[in-house]
Design a protein around this nucleic acid. Sequence first.
DNA 1: AGTGGCACCTGTGTGC
DNA 2: TGCACACAGGTGCCAC
Length: 272
Amino acid sequence: MPELPEVEVTMLGIRKALLDRTIKKVILGDKPLRAPLDPALYNLEGAKVLQLGRRAKYIMVHTDKGGLILHLGMSGHLRVLPKETALQKHDHFALINDLEEEIILNDARRFGLVVYVPEGQDPNELPFIKKLGPEPFDDSFNAQYLYSRLKGSSSAVKKLLMDNSIVVGVGNIYASEVLFASGISPKRCGNTISLEECSLITKHIRSILKAAVRSGGTTVRDFSGADGRPGYFALKLKVYGRRGEPCPVCNSPIVSATIGMRNSFYCPKCQK
DNA sequence: AGTGGCACCTGTGTGC
DNA sequence: TGCACACAGGTGCCAC
């Protein structure tokens, strides 16, 4: 489901129910997600939430009794629901705050992740966080940097944009959209992308991700924010999911191709 | 080291 | 209607 905009929208959506509130109860489902649910998560009962943030597609929660890291995987979503809402199928993790609101993680495919970070441990030092590349909105993510990372690679540029160690937050939908906006074929090898093209790519990653956050994210199948409302950026997608439809610029039919085992959409005429 | 392929899991849509 | 199959927004591990 979620790329950076969807995670950002979700994080903002649960913010009000968590920030400066106390976690009264932790509920763990019995099925494992990407990793089994750690019983140490119960340490968060009685904790006061000090800060909420996002790193890549991870939601980071800091409390006075340790940290919590949430990842939505492919199908996960977090909802804030009124007190005593019964858990549904695929609800695997829940927090109840001091207002008795329930913050529930539902994840049919169980590719998500819930991690407890013991008090005093720096979450940024966890291996899966430490290896992440720059945030797309960081100054360090610029044309020169991207060029240096692409120029040695024979992989398709679209696959490289989805590589977390190069830049975080760009998933399958936005990689297609960014390359369309940049006029670059998703099949081009990284080592054929010029510095000028890297400048276009960095610019469009920022503008498209920002616009998607403003629209409440992209709902392709079943994404919704913490209030249950869908995102509306799907209406603004120019190529993703539009095989056979006319290119919004030149009217040629949009085509799709499998790149790095993921479906990719592009205009063969506009994208060289 | 860099790269491609596959695995994890369930739900949904399509075609027969 | 039922069934089989392909596919879905992410990520980590494996073998080359």
